[in-house]
Design a protein around this nucleic acid. Structure first.
Length: 837
DNA sequence: CTAGGGTTAG
């Protein structure tokens, strides 16, 4: 491009002579006179040059018309290189026009713009070409800016200008610009022009307004397929299945035949609604009209529709029958398998693509395949795709990069995710969000905060998903101050009415011990969805407020707007379980199937076993497992084992643990329980053996850890922790407390100690449990009137539970402990869980 | 026509 510039200016003097003789466009004169220098080379052959140029232009024009862009560019190069006749280097106005059109059509927008800017007074045609180029390739705001400049220069936009600039508005989702341009079109009397009106419909639809398209559509002087398609595509975009079918029928009644684009516009919403019958009839329509045979778009849309309807056989058959496939075809098919949980087949297809469809490989296909890896936990394949992306240059693509981040976090390799994240060249909001939620999912909420801070520092704007990602980090840490801060941020950014954000806020407040604030957020919601109800019900559950959870469920029923799902009943039954409402829980378990058509899944049996087990009905729990229609997995037996441990039923516990052990490595989470069980039974060798097996199989027991937020800073402790700067005073406080509570009647229950050590040692180990450290620090740091909330990642140990009750007496203050199961509100020597947790 | 990050339970 620099070269072009040089050439043009070098030969500028010639322009004058040529133009003076041809007088094609006097404006060029103005351009050139200011910089005109004495010529070193006159143009004796200007007539010949002119002829040659004319020849080139004609050739160029015909190439552009026949869309032979490569050839056209070639001609441009010839003109540039043609030293034989220097006159051909001139910025001839007609040549410039052709070149602007050429490069704008080739989507080399910048190049086109450079040439465009050399034309002092472009005509409408050129403005349109330039605006069109921006509206296709972006930057879209430039199309709008150019439109404005065009208008201010007094050039009247025509019926081609409006569609182009409106397309840019839809890309920008800028309703404001769109409305302004609509106004101009109206004043220009072009509002009901078929092209303009269609573009208006499209723009309004994309910007989320459905009333205006209907109005514009009704005022149109005539409606062609494209206009109908715009309406249908718009409704399809908003998932309005009924409207789509209504317009589809109306269109045919109006004598307009649906075409391939119609079909392509309709099928996504058909798939979305799993309207298989409709989908099949569209398929038939395609066959009748011969519009699907080699149309990649139609076939891909059909394939996708079948996949969304979970008819993978039909999808695959459509896929196989296609003579031509593109990236979308492959991606849709792979994505279909992933959607239907046929992960292995999805990966298989990806492998086939690597062999047979490599030319179609693109970032979307890679993203689909990476999603499959993430879902299957197949980190090997994921890494392979990482390598593939490096090899074939896909790594710079943010979609691929973000998929990799997600894949690594989903398979548990958060370190790899962080490593890759640090190496990424461009990190957008999605990248940050992926890493933040990745950290939280992998249990590292602190890291999530640090990434979040870095994000704000870098100036990448958080969006709704980012906030939904960071709020669980607050929930996890029970970091109320961080949570409130995030809530503030949510309000400032205008996300406060987003349903998912509210759901996360409800969860955050509930888990930070402020159930009343959770309720407030819930009550303010315009229309809570099922997740909202589930979250608030579970919130009451973990606070031991089972009765409130049940009454809330009844309200949900009455409201009728959200239908209870499987998770609702998990939340409800476990709420009953945490409050000892055994009969109530049983009732809802029965009603679940009878009244709500929710098929019990393993999760529900886990809750039931937990409910019965905690209530001491161990036999009944075991009976339930034996009679359950599903295969009980290790988690079910784990729930029984947990109950056996609480109720110290060694025999049944052993039975449960045998079954869990026979399941092999699957029983990861149960290792801890099992080991604790043996420890509680005094069988330290067996307990140790379990831990060895566990280690051999590569499972690390997450260490018991407790934390407390003081002034917005989370202080974490592990058992026997000496790393805290205040350690010496914490231990001193604990020693004093130990004396005090003993005086009040506390006796250590050493059966909770995990190691085979002598009694005195055991007592010391108990004294330094992480929850006690955090509590001691809380007492030291917080004023008497400030409530103490300590969070523990595992269940609070039984000895600590007993000790904390005495501590509330000794210190005359309330203490709240949130463990893996629920909140324990300790006060005046009692706990609201009633020793039932 | 496809595709990247997100909420609820145990």
């Amino acid at each position: 491009m620099v070269a072009t510039k040089t050439v043009l200016s070098l030969h500028r003097p010639l322009v004058l002579s040529t133009l003076l003789t041809t007088k094609r466009n006097s404006t060029i004169l103005l351009l050139s006179t200011s910089t005109a220098k004495p010529t070193q080379q006159l143009a004796p052959n200007s007539a010949a040059a002119e002829a040659e140029l004319a020849h080139y232009i004609k050739h160029l024009d015909s190439c552009i018309r026949s869309k032979s862009y490569a050839q056209a560019k070639n001609i441009h190069q010839q003109i540039l290189a043609s030293n034989a006749n220097t006159a051909t280097h001139i910025p001839d106005p007609l040549l410039l026009e052709k070149l602007v059109v050429l490069y704008s059509q080739c989507n080399e927008t910048e190049h086109a713009r450079e040439l465009f800017d050399k034309i002092p007074q472009p005509n409408v045609f050129l403005w349109n070409a330039m605006i069109r180029s921006y509206s296709w390739n972006g930057p879209f705001d430039r199309a709008v800016a150019l439109f404005r400049r065009m208008v201010s220069r007094g050039v009247a936009p025509n019926k081609f200008t409006f569609p182009f600039v409106l397309k840019a508005c839809s890309a920008l989702l800028s309703l404001e610009d769109g409305v302004e341009i609509h106004d101009r079109a109206r004043r220009a009397g072009l509002e009901s022009d078929v092209f303009v009106a269609t573009a208006l419909i499209d723009m309004y639809m994309k910007c989320g307004r459905l009333d205006e398209p209907r109005r514009v559509f009704s005022t149109m002087e005539r409606r062609d397929v494209v206009a109908w398609n715009a309406m249908i595509a718009g409704f399809s975009l908003h998932g309005l299945y009924e409207e789509v079918t209504r317009f589809l029928l109306a269109m045919q009644r109006d004598g307009i035949d649906p075409n391939a684009s119609t079909v392509v516009a309709v099928l996504p919403v058909v798939g979305q609604h799993k309207a298989l019958r409709q989908g099949k009839s569209i398929h038939c329509f395609c066959i009748r009209r011969h519009i699907h045979r080699d149309d990649v778009l139609v076939c891909t849309a059909l394939l996708d529709m079948y996949a969304k309807c979970e008819l993978l056989g039909y999808a695959q058959r459509t896929f196989d029958s296609m003579r031509f496939r593109n990236e979308v075809t492959w991606s849709a098919m792979i994505g279909g398998y992933v959607l239907c949980d046929e992960i292995a087949k999805g990966l298989e297809l990806f492998e086939q693509m690597v062999v047979d469809g490599a030319s179609n490989m693109g970032s979307t296909s890679l993203a689909c395949a990476l999603r499959a890896c993430a879902r299957s936990g197949n980190s090997g394949r994921g890494r392979w795709i990482h390598c593939y992306s490096v090899k074939f240059g896909f790594l710079t693509d943010t979609t691929v990069g973000n998929s990799l981040l997600s894949m690594y976090s989903r398979v548990g390799s958060i370190d790899d995710a962080l490593q890759f994240f640090s190496e990424m060249r461009t990190r957008d909001t999605v990248s940050y969000s992926a890493v933040i939620s990745g950290c939280v999912q992998n249990g590292n909420a602190t890291e999530a905060f640090s990434v979040f801070r870095k994000m704000q520092f870098t100036g990448v704007e958080p969006d709704v998903a980012t906030m939904v990602g960071i709020l669980p980090a607050c929930s996890h840490l029970a970091a109320l101050q961080h949570g409130k801060c995030s809530h503030g941020s949510v309000i400032v950014r205008g996300f406060a009415s987003d349903v998912s954000v509210c759901n996360s806020l409800i969860d955050m407040y509930a888990k930070c011990g402020r159930i009343e604030l959770a309720r407030e957020v819930f009550d303010r919601m315009a229309d809570p969805d099922t997740v909202s109800w589930n979250t608030i019900i579970a919130g009451y559950g973990i606070h031991g407020l089972g009765t409130d959870a049940v009454s809330l469920f009844r309200t949900m029923e009455d409201s009728g707007s959200s239908v209870p799902d499987g998770i609702t009943f998990v939340s409800l039954i476990s709420a009953c379980s945490h409050s000892g409402l055994v009969a109530e829980g049983k009732h809802w378990f029965g009603a679940m199937t009878r009244k709500y058509n929710v098929v019990p899944r393993v999760e529900h049996y886990i809750c039931m076993v937990d409910l019965l087990g905690r209530g001491g009905l161990l036999e009944e729990a075991r009976g339930l497992i034996r009679n359950m229609p599903l295969e009980p997995d290790v988690r079910v037996w784990g729930a029984l084992l947990g109950a056996c441990r609480v109720h110290k039923n060694i025999e049944m516990g052993e039975e449960a643990s045998r079954i869990i052990q026979s399941a092999g490595p699957e029983g990861t989470g149960s290792f801890v329980l099992l080991s604790n069980m043996y420890n509680a039974a005094g069988r330290f060798d067996e307990a140790a053996r379990v831990r060895v097996v566990q280690r051999e199989q590569g499972f690390r027991k997450s260490p018991g850890c407790s934390w407390v937020e003081i002034g917005g800073v989370v202080h974490a402790f592990v058992g026997g922790d000496g790393s805290h700067p205040e350690s010496s005073s914490i231990y001193e406080k604990l020693e004093n407390l130990s004396v005090e509570i003993r005086r009040l009647g506390y006796r250590a229950d050493t059966s909770f100690v995990l190691h085979d050590v002598d009694e005195e040692e055991k007592e010391r180990a108990l004294l330094y449990h992480s929850e006690k450290l955090a509590i001691a620090f809380g007492i030291l740091s917080l004023g008497r009137d400030v409530p103490i909330l300590v969070t523990k990642n595992l269940r609070v140990c039984g000895d600590c539970h007993a000790a904390i009750k005495f501590i509330t007496l000794a210190e005359k203050r309330a203490i709240t402990v949130r463990d893996a199961s629920r909140f324990h509100h300790f006060k005046d020597g009692e706990c609201n869980c009633g020793d039932f947790w």
